[in-house]
């Protein structure tokens, strides 16, 4: 059986998410993610001629809320959850380059 997903593709996606995977993990996830894709590919077996694509299981549209301010979280509590903070802001390792 051909793999629906290559090891290189998994490595690429891992890089985009900045995940460092070992060789063993790469093999493991290539197989596991491949099974997920195969499962989803089962849909292709069905005859869906004339069936409109479904974007969402609910038939709802335009679910909106009024533009009214609600109380935000307490900053000290929020920052206490972070590994590091400085000057009322979250401190993170410097990311090279600019935002996409």
């Amino acid at each position: 059986m051909t793999h629906p997903l290559t090891r290189d593709e998994v490595a690429h996606v891992a890089h985009l998410a900045r995940l460092r995977l070992s060789d063993t993990e790469l093999d493991l996830f290539t197989a596991q993610l491949g099974q997920v894709l195969e499962h989803a590919a089962d849909m292709n077996e069905l005859d869906l001629e004339g069936v409109k694509p479904t974007a969402h299981p609910f038939g709802l549209v335009n679910v909106v809320r009024a533009d009214e301010v609600r109380t935000s979280l307490d900053r000290d509590e929020v920052l206490a959850m972070a590994p590091d903070a400085e000057d009322g802001r979250f401190a993170v390792p410097r990311i090279m380059g600019e935002a996409p």
């Binding site: 590091d84 000057d87 009322g88 802001r89 979250f90 401190a91 993170v92 390792p93 410097r94 990311i95």
Partner: peptide, 8 residues
Amino acid sequence: ADRSLVDY
């Protein structure tokens, strides 16, 4: 010491 501070 290089790091970034984020305001959400």
